[in-house]
Amino acid sequence: MGKVLLGRYIPGSSLVHRMDSRSKLILSFFFIVIIFLANNWESYLLLFIVTITSILTARVNFSFFIKGVRPLIWLILFTVLLQIFFSSGGTVFWKWGPFTLSYYGIVNGIYVFCRFVLIIFMSTLLTLTTAPLEIADALEKLMMPLKRIKVPVYEISLMLSIALRFVPTLMDETTKIMNAQRSRGVNFGEGNIMQQIKAVVPLLVPLFVSSFNRAEDLATAMEARGYHGGEGRTKYRVHYWEIRDTLGCTFFVVVFIILLFIRQW
């Protein structure tokens, strides 16, 4: 294990780290939405500058972002190729059956690639600089208005926190059981498909058993300490909206306005 980057938090004290998780979450969503407004070179350049600036402010090693792109590279390439070969318009360079290679196709392909990279970079920045539990907290706070329409916000956020909390635990458990079964002669990731499927059984059964046991223990422990639903509970982690959050939001609104001016209508 240890290669999974998604949701891997790197502690730090940069401006981005210290921002309120709510503002970071809102801004990430906001940025992902406005990426879809960009439709020419200038607008993509602007968004790249914004992303690079944010990454530099967070003072996180750039290699983490490259690693964030790598697991999705096939999906990206597939989408890009689809764009290149199936969208038409402008000068046609090459044609074969349903495939056309046109000027617009190539441009669209490059745009789609940029869009993917920008989205991945920004969401990686969010997860690298914000602890998973803080993201869960922020989600709970932001979902609060939904309580009016009877959405079980507390329960959703509790489920989310517990799930996040147990990701590392389950990963440890997986490593342990894999080690034990390897010592008993199981070869994971070797042989033909049937052998590989068979190798998963000695891993999955113990994992299920221990997860169920753990869930029961957790429920007992929570009840023993008086948990009775989220109503009226105070929070251990309190959010403070500071100047830097207002500044961050202003910065992105300004970017949004500039984007509206330079995009092609």
Binding site: E173, K176, I177, N179, A180, Q181, R182, G185, P202, P206
Partner: peptide, 17 residues
């Protein structure tokens, strides 16, 4: 090598399936 070295891990009952 693994044939010749048997390891009983901590709480080995977790490996039963």
């Amino acid at each position: 090598l693994r044939k010749h070295v048997g390891i009983v891990f901590q709480f080995p009952e977790a490996q039963l399936f």
